[in-house]
Design a protein around this nucleic acid. Structure first.
Lengths: 166, 166
DNA sequence: CTCAGTGCAAACCGTTTGCAGAACG
DNA sequence: CGTTCTGCAAACGGTTTGCACTGAG
């Protein structure tokens, strides 16, 4: 349970970004950044708020949202939407700079994986459509191994394929 | 401008789905289904509401949302979230049953493309993580060809990579 | 006739914004 | 000290829900 890496270097990076943009380096901004950098998973705003409260910080939700916007703009943090009705945030300082997500539709577990094939797809669309890719999001939804072992199955209730159109 | 395919067969499919589920086949449900089947692009709820109003239908927003839920459950319609703060809906009756999206960050244009490589990626994660893929979403964000020709460029304001972590 | 569906409006909930007071530079 | 930020609370906007009424079966 010693998974608390030193966040100081990351905090310093964020401070540098703020200075470059001519923005004040406030205690609250550093505290929010710390909360995100210290965590490993995909954090909701509620997660961050709780983490700050546990750390004894008294920071309003509005400030958290405003700081997350800065963190995303600084490229130090990625914003995700896993279709839960709210956003999640993940720092980019792991050893997996580009990765995709596997989302279990039953338990909600999120697994990360890397795929160089997506880069090939990007290159293909660049060639074929003249599109200049900047960023991509690949999410695969399904059942994780643990849920399959528990005997969970997806219950299809829709019309079955192939669709007869006549 | 004759892009108005016959929606009757699709409407019949949806009616069949409703009957299979023991749900009443109402005028409103068929009207919403028609509006989605008749359109080609990725529709917002506002688009659908407007289309229904233009067709002389007086259908409340709540009914549109409730019917879209049924259409998605029937597998006749896909739900998308392109990060605009609301959902978009697209019927599945085109000749591109599985396709991915190219989203221009400047003009918002959405282009569809097919990629068999994503299926290979799905197979890989199935093998590697024991994950059973059901559905995926791949969206590539960047600049479309038209915007590039207009001289639009992405203005990076964040810290530049690679990130020095010390 | 009965029960589910519809329309309306209010509730919901994550997120954004306006403003008086606090803090960075 | 001026400008920007912060916290609070109210506003916002897409979506959902409660309820009296309508309509499908």
């Amino acid at each position: 349970m010693s998974a608390r890496p030193d966040t100081a270097p990351f905090r310093r990076l964020f401070a540098r970004f703020l200075k470059e943009q001519g923005l004040p380096v406030t205690h609250q901004r550093l505290a929010v950044a710390d909360a995100v950098f210290a965590a490993e998973g995909h954090l909701s705003v509620d997660d961050i708020e709780r983490s700050l409260k546990d750390a004894g910080e008294r920071i309003g939700k509005a400030t958290i949202y405003r700081t997350l916007d800065l963190l995303v703009r600084s490229n130090l943090v990625d914003e995700h939407d896993f279709g839960e009705g709210f956003k999640r945030y993940e720092h980019r300082l792991s050893e997996r700079p580009i990765h995709e997500h596997l989302i279990c539709q039953h338990c909600g577990a999120v697994t990360e994986f890397e795929s160089t094939e997506v880069l090939r797809i990007e290159a293909t669309v660049a060639r074929e459509f003249g599109f200049r890719p900047v960023r991509h999001k690949l999410a695969i939804y399904g059942l994780c191994a643990a849920c399959q072992e528990k005997g969970v199955t997806v219950t299809p209730e829709g019309l079955t394929c192939p669709i007869e159109t006549v």
